[in-house]
């Protein structure tokens, strides 16, 4: 498998409320996405996962680093060429109520995307609209409805259909189901699985819902304060979380089974995420980490290989970790 999308040492920062200071929302992140793969990106709010996604599609301007799509460095392009290259990477927004224009009908919204994609003939566009609606599991009769008349799940499908109009190869999905009702989440999640299967679309799935990501993604990245702290196959990361943050994050998720939930006594992460304006020295997680030692404050942890393809940025990752836990 070859990487279709590579993000190398990306840094995106925002000016802070205080003058002269900047917040590094994404701090030297490298990730990649293979053809036809669904990859999860998880973390708490403010960890920079959305900013990373937005930087990839050009909604935020990165300070440094590269976004390489299909072997082409997007930073080397500009103007029309850049817009056309970027079209292959589409973004699915969290809120389907805000991502569609209320004043457009379903047909108009998708038609506009087709015009942008350069489909000149009106009849061809009509045919393609029907095809796209069909692809996302909607009846073609919704074409003349205004988007505001539809439910959240339907609107999210239309937003997806609109993205598909420009024939993307990668979808960056930013919490695509968290605004939807429980009973419909599965429908939209299955749609992503279908799209990957039928169209070969790769997905970067940004979410805070760990269980959802586990089932959908073959690989997963865990972010904390703008950095990737752990990455690996979902199987590995969920079964053998090797960064203390990932462990505590997974342990915090309540179980829907009351018997296990009552017995479970999750180790609580104490405190809250430090301000990204002024992150701790050394390891960013050390202020909340139950394992932290003095050395953690001195140098940034190096990414350690736990097993092949499974990495964690913690000095105790891998073999050392088990010893440390049993000692603690």
């Amino acid at each position: 498998m070859s990487a279709i999308l590579e993000v190398e040492h990306l840094v995106t920062s925002f000016p802070s409320a205080k003058r002269g200071q900047t917040i590094k929302a994404v701090n030297d992140v490298s990730i990649h996405l293979n053809q036809g793969e669904i990859v999860g990106l998880v973390g708490e709010s403010g960890c920079g996962k959305s900013t990373l996604g937005r930087s990839i599609v050009g909604l935020e301007k990165p300070q440094s680093g590269r976004v390489v799509f299909d072997g082409v460095d997007l930073g080397s392009l500009s103007g029309r060429r850049l817009r056309e290259a970027r079209r292959a990477v589409q973004y699915v927004f969290q809120d389907p109520y805000a991502s569609l224009n209320d004043r457009q009908t379903v047909g108009e919204a998708i038609n506009e995307a087709l015009i942008i994609a350069g489909l000149r003939s009106q009849t061809e566009r009509e045919g393609r609209i029907a095809e796209l609606l069909n692809q996302v599991g909607l009846a073609t009769t919704v074409r003349d409805r205004f988007t505001r008349e539809l439910s959240g799940g339907q609107r999210q499908r239309i937003a997806i259909a609109r993205s598909l109009a420009v024939e993307p190869r990668v979808l960056i999905c930013d919490e695509p189901v968290s605004a939807l009702d429980l009973s419909i989440r599965a429908q939209v999640m299955n749609l992503f699985l279908d799209l990957r299967e039928k169209l070969g679309v790769s997905c970067l799935f940004i979410a805070h819902d760990l269980a959802l990501v586990r089932q959908a993604a073959s690989r997963v990245y865990v972010m904390y304060l703008g950095k990737v702290v752990e990455s690996g196959s979902s199987e590995e990361v969920y079964r053998n979380p090797s960064h203390p943050y990932t462990q505590l994050l997974l342990a915090s998720v309540p179980e829907a089974d009351p018997a296990t939930e009552r017995r479970r006594n999750p180790p609580l992460i104490t405190g809250e995420i430090p301000s990204p304006t002024n992150p701790p020295s050394g390891c960013f997680f050390r202020t909340r980490c139950p394992l932290s030692v003095e050395a953690c404050a001195e140098a940034e942890p190096v990414s350690q290989e736990v097993s092949s393809m499974h990495k964690a940025a913690c000095r105790f990752a891998g073999g050392l970790f088990a010893k440390r836990v049993s000692a603690a």
Partner: peptide, 9 residues
């Protein structure tokens, strides 16, 4: 299973 379909209503 990872990659399996989601159950829903």
């Amino acid at each position: 299973a990872i990659g399996s379909r989601f159950r829903g209503l």
